Simulated scan of single mutants.
Amino acid sequence: MKFVTLLKMAEKLNELIIDEIAWKSIKNDGLDIQYSIPIPRPLAFAIIKELDETLEYFTGDLAKIKVFGKIYPLPRQQVAYGDPGITYTYSNLTVPALPWPDPVLALRNFIFKIKGIKYNFVLVNKYRNGNDHMGEHRDNEPELDPTVPIASLSFGAERTFVLKHRDARKSGPNKKPIPPVSITLEHGSVLFMNPPTNEFWYHSLPKRKKIRGPRINLTFRKIR
């Protein structure tokens, strides 16, 4: 029964007509983002159910993070998948890429169909409710290919994605009055952070205490 569910999910993703996807483009001072909701809600619900039933998240040291020398539990659940031998280091945490599970491979194939890029790594974050969050950061680690966009897929509760220009975060005379950009990441949505976005813009997923439902986000990356 599980195989049939997964097979149908992959078939439905493959049936989506890429040329008919309507993209919203956001560009501003180094920011280059494309956003759309190409996955119909019934299929998106089937996908999050499949992910919920099959994915297992890191525990122990891989479920912790070091901030200013102190170690804290990650304010979300996390796991990583990718090609053999790949690791990814951020915030003094090195995560290994586990072997690709079939549901995640189906989503990688969907992104390849859209963008023509075969990503070799994905970071999966589960936000159990509105208290789970992601702090401000840039995905500009040296092992990432800076010419390849980061592809983000969202399933579940809608959350606000906030981007801030690096010069707007400064203090004193070097601070620039560049307003932040907020995007509501909807159920079944895809967002591409195209270069040079992560060179100039920080992004975060702030707390939203009124949100009770879970959200699963997959960020596909190309490791050099």
Score class of each variant (00 low, 15 high):
G135R: 11
L105S: 09
I18P: 09
L191C: 03
F58M: 13
I183E: 07
V124R: 07
I37K: 10
L98E: 01
N92Q: 13
H133M: 11
P103T: 08
I211L: 03
V122I: 04
K222V: 12
H137L: 11
N194K: 06
F3K: 10
P177Q: 02
S36D: 09
I178W: 06
D19G: 15
L43Q: 05
G60R: 15
R224S: 14
E136M: 12
A168V: 10
V190I: 01
P196Q: 11
T54Q: 13
P142E: 00
P149G: 07
Y119I: 04
N92S: 11
T160H: 08
P40L: 11
S25Q: 08
K176H: 05
G82M: 00
V67P: 12
K24Q: 05
V124K: 02
Y90W: 05
R108A: 09
A44T: 14
L185E: 04
G135H: 12
W201H: 07
F110G: 09
L13Q: 14
L144V: 03
Q78L: 15
A10M: 11
L74Q: 12
A151Y: 10
L205F: 02
P173K: 14
A63V: 09
L218C: 05
N198T: 07
N92K: 11
H133L: 06
T197L: 08
P99F: 02
E158G: 10
A46S: 09
E143G: 01
G116C: 05
M9D: 06
T5A: 09
S154H: 14
S91L: 08
H133D: 09
R224I: 10
P142D: 01
F45W: 11
W23D: 04
D29R: 10
P42E: 14
P96K: 08
S204R: 06
T184G: 06
M1F: 02
N174W: 05
M193N: 00
I183L: 15
I37L: 12
V162E: 10
L163A: 10
R159P: 05
G213I: 01
R138S: 14
K49D: 12
F192T: 03
K113R: 09
D139H: 08
Y90G: 04
I39P: 12
P73Q: 15
A44R: 14
V104F: 04
K27L: 02
S36H: 11
K24W: 02
I117S: 01
R208H: 01
E50P: 03
I178M: 03
N125F: 03
Q78S: 14
P75L: 05
T54H: 13
Y35P: 08
R76D: 12
